[in-house]
Amino acid sequence: MKQQTTTPYMYSTPMYYQPTPMYTPPAGSTLPAAGGTTGQVAGQQVPGMLPAEESYIENILRLNRGKVATVYMTFENNREWNAKIFKGVIEAAGRDHLVLSDPQTGRRYLLPMIYLDYITFDEEIEYQYPFGGGPMASYPPR
């Protein structure tokens, strides 16, 4: 009589792979829509996700409208001047630009952020701390 062999890969019922979710939201809460980067669920911080970021340069400049700033910019491939310094009152700021006005001459400057190196102020600045705190003019001493 011949022995019948079975291969170890044959199963009587099919097996399916079930991935385990990395994060399960608490009952009753919802996740942000796809593409959202807020990192918050129903006003709460989601573990493993970054908090909402508010400290972008344009937001900090908007908080300091009306203050005098010195803006340092570098313009590559410019034969007349490579770097330039602008001093004036912050009138407006957008995602890609800054508007300064020179109170002595009345001249207005529309400056593209792409050329921005840094900005200095001669007084304390308003700064909205990005992670749930209130406005901060300076960091506490270390």
Rank of each mutant, 00 (worst) to 15 (best):
M1P: 02
K2V: 06
K2A: 04
Q3A: 03
Q4D: 08
Q4I: 13
T6A: 11
T6V: 09
M10L: 14
M10Y: 10
M10N: 08
Y11H: 11
Y11L: 13
S12A: 14
S12Y: 13
P14M: 02
P14C: 01
P14Q: 10
M15T: 01
Y16V: 06
Q18K: 11
P19W: 04
T20S: 09
P21M: 07
M22T: 06
M22D: 09
T24W: 01
P25G: 00
A27C: 01
G28V: 04
G28Y: 06
S29N: 00
L31M: 14
P32R: 09
A33E: 12
A33K: 11
G35V: 02
G35T: 05
G36S: 15
T38F: 02
T38A: 03
T38V: 01
G39L: 07
V41K: 08
V41F: 00
V41R: 12
G43I: 03
G43A: 04
G43L: 05
Q44G: 00
Q45P: 00
V46Q: 05
V46C: 01
V46A: 08
P47K: 11
M49W: 07
L50F: 10
P51L: 10
A52K: 13
A52T: 08
E58H: 15
E58D: 11
E58T: 01
N59W: 03
I60V: 15
L61C: 07
R62Y: 01
R62D: 05
R62C: 05
L63D: 13
L63V: 00
L63S: 09
N64V: 04
N64A: 09
G66Q: 11
K67S: 11
K67I: 06
V68T: 14
V71M: 03
V71Q: 02
M73T: 13
T74E: 13
T74V: 11
T74A: 12
T74P: 04
T74K: 15
T74F: 12
F75E: 11
F75W: 13
E76P: 10
E76K: 14
N77P: 02
R79L: 14
E80T: 14
N82T: 12
A83S: 14
K84R: 14
K84C: 08
F86E: 04
K87M: 13
V89R: 13
I90W: 02
E91L: 09
A92Y: 09
A93E: 02
G94R: 09
R95Q: 09
D96T: 06
H97E: 08
H97R: 09
H97A: 08
H97W: 12
L98R: 03
L98K: 03
L100N: 02
S101G: 01
S101N: 01
D102I: 01
P103N: 10
P103E: 07
Q104E: 15
Q104D: 13
Q104S: 12
R107M: 03
R108M: 03
L110H: 10
L110P: 00
P112Q: 11
M113A: 11
I114P: 00
Y118Q: 09
Y118W: 14
Y118E: 05
T120E: 15
F121Y: 15
F121R: 13
F121M: 15
F121P: 09
E123L: 10
E124H: 12
I125P: 04
E126P: 00
E126I: 06
Y127S: 10
Y127D: 03
Q128V: 02
Y129L: 08
P130S: 07
P130T: 04
F131S: 03
G133D: 13
G134Y: 06
M136R: 15
Y139D: 10
Y139V: 05
Y139H: 09
P141E: 11
